[in-house]
Design a protein around this nucleic acid. Structure first.
Length: 282
DNA sequence: AAGAATGTTACATG
DNA sequence: ACATGTAACATTCT
């Protein structure tokens, strides 16, 4: 579910709720596999009585720095959701982890598919070292994008989904960025011109910024859909130009949007604006 | 009712 | 080393 804009939305929500400075009083783990790395008891022992010093994001990870120097790394994977509650609220289905804070509030983690992970680590940078640059940081330049991609022979989409090349893009925003840039997802990275890289760079930043401004993409009404801390849906769906618009007219040229399978993922393209071979200049 | 689903990783094969 | 594919994780939604 959550890609960079959705994770950023959760992090901003957590900060806005003034969770920095709160101390964790109690830790309940209802699905042990949610805890990554060490043992569940070690995890509970390390978290209890710690104060949250800082909340940040890197790629699709939520980073919570704790008072004893350890850091809580949270990855929501496909269906992880964080919400705030109080002890009297009933435990919902698929709620796997509950942190009770010193002010009586609770951070609850719900994850239908149980893919998400909460892990305590001593050195964050070591754990995140394999991630590529942050797409919205000043360090992410056209040049860095080109250097990371151009000597690879692979297709654009799998490379953009690879978190080592670039941190934070997922299936939705890759399709959107490639449409914005007028590039076909199956085109080889090696075939791009300098101009293509400039367009791709701008497109990535555009779709991510737009996603954050809309507080993320909520695709439907089911429990597995993205929600912010207070159950609030993101409105970025109405900004989507190709994703899940199969058969609908392209907003640029009117051609019917097509769905393909690339990198085992559902992929959406405009067959006119995004041609595999050269010559596709939107 | 079969297939797909916003993610990542390990393993296999070319 | 790189590219690509499959399976696994577990459940819901269409």
């Amino acid at each position: 579910m959550p890609e960079l804009p959705e994770v950023e939305t959760v992090v901003r929500d957590l900060r806005a709720e003034r969770l920095v400075g709160r101390t964790i009083r109690q830790v309940a783990v209802h699905w042990p596999a949610t805890v990554g790395g060490g043992s569940v008891s070690g995890f509970r022992g390390r978290l209890a009585a710690r104060t949250i010093r800082q909340i940040a994001r890197r790629g699709k990870y939520i980073i919570m720095a704790l008072s004893d120097g350890w850091t809580l790394l949270v990855h929501l994977r496909m269906t992880g959701q964080i919400r705030l509650a109080t002890p009297s609220d009933i435990r919902e289905k698929h709620e796997h982890l509950v942190l009770t804070l010193d002010d009586g509030r609770q951070i609850r983690y719900r994850d239908t598919r149980k893919f998400g992970r909460w892990q305590l680590v001593r050195d964050v940078s070591g754990h995140l070292a394999r991630l590529g640059p942050e797409p919205l940081s000043p360090e992410f330049t056209v040049r860095r994008l080109r250097e990371a991609m151009s000597r690879r022979s692979g297709m654009l989409k799998p490379l953009l989904l690879n978190q080592r090349i670039l941190a934070g893009l997922g299936n939705i925003y890759v399709d959107e960025a490639l449409w914005e840039a007028g590039l076909h997802p199956m085109r080889s990275a090696a075939s791009l011109t300098a101009c293509d890289y400039r367009r791709l760079h701008a497109a990535i930043r555009l779709v991510l910024r737009r996603g954050i401004r809309a507080r993320g993409t909520t695709l439907g009404y089911g429990k597995t859909n993205f929600r912010g801390l207070r159950e609030r849906a993101g409105s970025n769906r109405r900004n989507l130009r190709v994703f899940r618009r199969t058969g609908e007219p392209c907003l640029r040229c009117g051609a019917k949007i097509e769905r393909l399978r690339v990198a085992q993922r559902s992929t959406h393209v405009c067959p006119e604006c995004q041609r595999v071979r050269e010559g596709a200049k939107p």
